Simulated scan of single mutants.
Amino acid sequence: MKNDMKIALITGVSRREGIGFETAKQLGQKGFKVIISAFKLDEATPLISVLNKLGIEADAVEIDITNDSSVIAAVEKIKAEYGKLDLLINNAVFSILLTATIEDEDLSELTKEVTTNIVGTWRVTQKFIPLLRQSDHGRIVNISSSKGSFTDTEWGLRNFDESFGPIPAYSITKAAINAITVKTARELKQYGILVNAVCPGFTATYPGLEDKGARPVSDGAEGIVWAATIPDDGPTGLFFRDRKIVPW
């Protein structure tokens, strides 16, 4: 591996059909060494050979983003092997896409979503900041959703088509991710680390979604890769979909 190779970590990569794997593939094709992580290492490991066959340098690490020890162990592994991290993509998410409303939401399930999506993202970001500071061009991309926007005309909290199910917990956690993005960007600007949130759009990450209008996963990942590779004078603390700003 070249000493100047950029190192990218993507959390929540366990399926070839997922947005995380497609993002890893596109970043690898741009010359990144990609480290993919999953809750269980044996979910991510088989994907390494797939990336390798495409000529992409890849590694895997186990990360349970709800567990301090797991995240710290991953930090120490990456620190020992690479000494830095150039790009962190917070992709891991827990979602129960059911028809629960605010009134009948199972609060134990809500707690799981908050613990994973909000606290877990915060935990991973917090623990990897020291390694990101070792990069000359540090970047953080938080995978969000237009469902976490108040005013997005199609998917926002005020305008979301309830025929998909109300899914309030997921939407609220993504609104929180957008807020975390703003605060993290302000704190890390002094180190030249750019932090943005990206909505990949409605993508076909599961069978049958194409029939509901979902687009190819490669289209959704393209916007993530764009945010991950913006120049040093690029935007920070903003929310994008397809390279365009999404209203908060």
Rank of each mutant, 00 (worst) to 15 (best):
R158D: 14
A228L: 09
N90H: 06
F32W: 01
T125H: 01
E222F: 14
A185T: 03
I78Y: 09
G148Q: 06
C199I: 04
D68A: 11
T236L: 06
I177H: 00
I140N: 08
Q29I: 03
L98C: 12
P207Y: 06
P235H: 14
P216A: 12
E103S: 13
N196A: 02
T45H: 03
W226D: 01
P216Q: 10
K33N: 14
L110D: 01
G201R: 04
R241P: 12
V34E: 02
A214D: 04
L9V: 05
N52E: 14
I63V: 15
D106P: 06
N52P: 03
G208R: 05
M5N: 13
I129T: 01
L110S: 03
A179I: 07
V13D: 08
E43F: 11
F160Y: 14
I143A: 01
L238G: 02
V75S: 04
F21S: 05
R123L: 15
I63P: 10
K40P: 10
V13A: 07
N52I: 03
R139H: 13
F202V: 03
E210L: 02
A169C: 09
L27S: 02
D106C: 01
S135Q: 09
K183G: 13
E76A: 10
F94A: 12
G20V: 05
D86Q: 14
A92W: 12
T99D: 14
I167M: 07
L47D: 03
D136F: 09
A204Q: 12
E81P: 07
K77L: 13
L85F: 02
I177G: 02
T121C: 08
K174H: 00
P216F: 06
L54G: 10
L54C: 09
S49V: 14
V141W: 13
V195H: 05
A227K: 06
G138K: 01
I56P: 00
I245D: 10
T45R: 14
A100K: 03
K212M: 15
L209T: 04
L107P: 04
G213I: 06
I177K: 02
A176Y: 09
L41D: 12
L131Y: 00
I177C: 06
M5D: 10
L27C: 00
F239A: 01
L41N: 09
V114N: 03
Y82I: 01
R133N: 15
D242G: 05
P247F: 07
E62A: 07
K6L: 11
L238R: 15
G31A: 00
K2W: 12
I65R: 08
G120W: 11
G55A: 05
L88I: 13
A8W: 12
E187K: 13
I7H: 06
K30R: 15
I96S: 15
T125F: 05
I63D: 08
P200S: 11
Y206T: 14
V71Q: 11
E187Q: 13
A227E: 07
I180D: 11
V13Q: 07
G20W: 01
A185F: 05
L85N: 05
V141H: 11
I56W: 08
D106I: 04
K25P: 01
D68T: 11
G18D: 06
F39I: 02
T115L: 02
I10H: 10
T125C: 07
K147E: 06
S218I: 07
L188D: 02
N117C: 09
K30G: 04
I7P: 12
N91W: 05
L188C: 03
L97Y: 11
G120T: 02
P216H: 07
S171V: 00
